[in-house]
């Protein structure tokens, strides 16, 4: 689904992603873990075509990607953002937000299609006429996920999709994402600072530090803490320590 070779991305003069290469197979879920500022979100935005200042070679769904993406790129790749409060237009109803990708891609739709999309993420038709400020954080993130699924993309990019939500809602959203992926056989690229969330959703993960991948591991090795790189082990120990604190 993704072939990335020597991706380097800059913010002005700062190199935030340094010579990163990785593959994501069709239907695979790939996690990227790292602390704040490690460049993981920028890497995700490079794949999405939202960050323009990058070099290297990138193929998505078998097509080589340039800085400008083709108009129908949104039918292949979609994204769920970190902040459910910032990712929905404050003056658009839920129904309008879900229709927008269809309108933009020139796809005919009716209310039934919007309602079906809402049901898919555990909401119902009564939410269609609501504005984002009338929804809870978890409901907003469900709407954002529904919007990301509207064009039935093959690859979903997830930028810390649960970190702005409280713990019980996090679990619901993770379960929803797992169910969506099973039902549709999509590929995921998940960016998170939490090993637990990556473990829960991904088969394979990379640990990122200061713009580079320092280690790539399977989910099993991640769970067991079978890590070679010292930074990755530190991160693992920190997340276990955090868990014991509960």
């Amino acid at each position: 689904m993704i072939e990335a070779r020597g991706i380097t991305a800059r913010h002005g003069d700062n190199v935030v992603v340094r010579d990163v290469s990785f593959d994501v197979a069709d239907g695979e879920s790939f996690g990227i873990v790292g602390e704040s500022g490690s460049g993981k979100s920028t890497l995700l935005r490079v794949i999405a075509g939202l960050h323009r200042d990058w070099s290297g070679e990138l193929s998505v769904a078998g097509k080589k990607q340039d800085r400008d993406r083709p108009h129908d790129f949104g039918r292949v790749v979609s994204m769920v953002f970190q902040d459910p409060y910032g990712s929905l237009h404050p003056r658009q109803t839920v129904g309008r937000a879900l229709a927008e990708p269809l309108i933009v891609q020139g796809i005919r739709y009716d209310a039934a299609r919007i309602d079906a999309a809402l049901r898919d993420v555990g909401l119902d038709a009564s939410h269609r006429a609501r504005y984002p400020h009338q929804l809870s954080g978890g409901q907003r993130q469900r709407v954002a996920i529904a919007r990301a699924l509207m064009l039935e993309p093959r690859l979903l990019l997830l930028d810390e999709p649960t970190s702005a939500l409280d713990a019980s809602v996090q679990a619901d959203i993770l379960a929803l994402l797992r169910r969506v992926r099973q039902a549709r056989g999509m590929s995921f690229v998940l960016v998170s600072h939490s090993l637990a969330i990556v473990e829960a959703l991904c088969e394979r993960a990379a640990v990122m530090q200061q713009g580079s991948f320092v280690e790539e591991v399977s989910a099993g090795d991640l769970r067991r803490g079978n890590l070679h790189n010292s930074y990755a082990r530190e991160l693992f120990a920190a997340s276990r320590g955090f868990r014991r604190a509960f």
Partner: peptide
């Protein structure tokens, strides 16, 4: 740089739209 603008761009909305 709002995320809802990013979402619209990613869906393929033109600059004018």
């Amino acid at each position: 740089h709002a995320e809802f603008i990013d979402a619209a761009r990613l869906a393929g909305a033109s600059g004018g739209r």
